[in-house]
Computed example of a mutant assay.
Amino acid sequence: MTHTYTSCKSTVKPELHRVALSAYAQCRILDGMSDRRIYLKEWRKKAGKTQAQVVSALEMLDDPMLPTTEASLSRLENGKQPYSERVLLALADIYDCEPWELIGRHPQKEGLVIDLVRRLDEREQERVRAYIEGIRAASSGD
């Protein structure tokens, strides 16, 4: 999975920006997220990477706004340092997930259906969506 990421002026894939990060301006600290649970460490561990490996991968992006030490990555993972959209995009590329998942989904506790659907092509995803909507309509008596 590759996300569009190069610099502050880069474009985010429209579907990611619209779905996951629409309320946040590019290159700013994400507003309103200080009280949300983040799962940066859990996603790193799921990817089987050490902090040193992640920092090394981030350094290759040559962006001074990304963590450049294990200590700064640790502060991000523990919620002691704010993160930006740029950080989420870069980490999502490294961890092979979507940026919103880093702040909205524990990789070991949730998402079996999401993970399965992500592997489908666009046509198959549309069929699954229609099926789910049919189930919801039938269960609500519509």
Rank of each mutant, 00 (worst) to 15 (best):
L58V: 06
Y95N: 00
D62G: 04
P82H: 09
A52I: 13
K109I: 10
A52T: 11
L91E: 06
Q53A: 01
L88V: 04
A57T: 07
I103Y: 04
M60R: 14
H106F: 04
G79E: 03
A92S: 14
L91V: 07
E101Y: 13
A90E: 08
R105S: 07
E98W: 13
S74T: 15
S72E: 15
Q53M: 01
Y83I: 08
Q108G: 10
I94L: 06
D62S: 08
Q81K: 15
A52D: 11
L91K: 05
L61K: 11
M65V: 10
S84W: 04
M60Y: 07
T68Y: 11
L76T: 01
R75T: 09
L61W: 10
V55Y: 07
A90P: 13
R105V: 12
Q53I: 00
Y95W: 05
P82C: 08
L73N: 00
Q108D: 11
P67H: 08
C97N: 12
L66R: 07
C97G: 07
L88D: 01
L73Q: 01
R75H: 15
E101A: 13
A92W: 13
E70V: 09
P67Q: 06
L73S: 01
Q51N: 04
L89R: 01
P64A: 09
I94N: 01
E77Y: 00
P107Y: 07
P67I: 04
K109H: 03
E77G: 00
P67T: 06
